[in-house]
């Protein structure tokens, strides 16, 4: 089989089998990319995953681009990334079309009324989980508080807060290190 087609299909399978992205993807990547296809070693995969978390964009997409480009250059990176998002495009388009078609039905609206409550709890859980790793001293607590309040009570774009937080992190660490 053509290597690019193989790459596309393999990453499409990975995307289609991952629920939630991020860490949920790692075991499937290990199985497909390291053990089956041997496109990267275990160490490389862990490296890509770690760097995928500290470069812009969502982790799953970043890791796919990394592996693809490592094995087959720029075109490989693009093909692997398109593969990993392909199942989402199909599945979500089908579901969104169905939901749009049925959204006027009363009981569907009631169901989503209940689901919205669940989404509140899911987001709350996501935040508490992130906080355990993020808040490690008083500076990080202040950054968390400032961004939460700033984002609630202003119309500033998240872009501004992301830039502010990166600069603040570098300044606090650089100045703090010299004490």
């Amino acid at each position: 089989m053509n290597i690019y087609l193989d790459m596309f299909l393999t990453f499409a399978r990975i995307g289609g089998l991952t629920f939630g992205g991020g860490y949920a993807m790692l075991p499937i990547l290990q199985h497909e990319v390291v053990e089956n296809k041997k496109w990267a070693t275990e160490e490389e995969l862990i490296d890509y995953f770690a760097i995928g978390q500290c470069t812009p964009g969502i982790i799953a997409v970043n890791t796919a681009t990394f592996i693809g480009q490592k094995y087959k250059g720029i075109l490989g990176g693009i093909v692997a990334t398109l593969g990993v998002v392909f199942p989402s495009l199909i599945i979500i388009s089908l579901l969104a079309g169905m939901i749009e078609a049925f959204s006027h039905i009363a009981w569907v609206q009631h169901a989503f009324g209940g689901i919205r409550v669940c989404v509140c709890v899911l987001i709350f859980n996501a935040v508490t989980k992130l906080l355990k790793k993020a808040i490690i001293d008083k500076f990080t607590f202040v950054i968390f508080l400032a961004v939460t309040l700033g984002s609630c009570f202003s119309n500033l774009s998240p872009v501004i807060f992301v830039i502010f937080a990166a600069v603040a992190g570098i300044m606090i660490k650089t100045l703090g290190g010299k004490k």
Binding site: L130, T140, F144, V147, T148, F161, A168, G169, I170
Partner: peptide, 10 residues
């Protein structure tokens, strides 16, 4: 170090 709490805040 700064981005993690900011992401949680957003």
């Amino acid at each position: 170090y700064g981005l993690r709490p900011a992401s949680a805040g957003l």
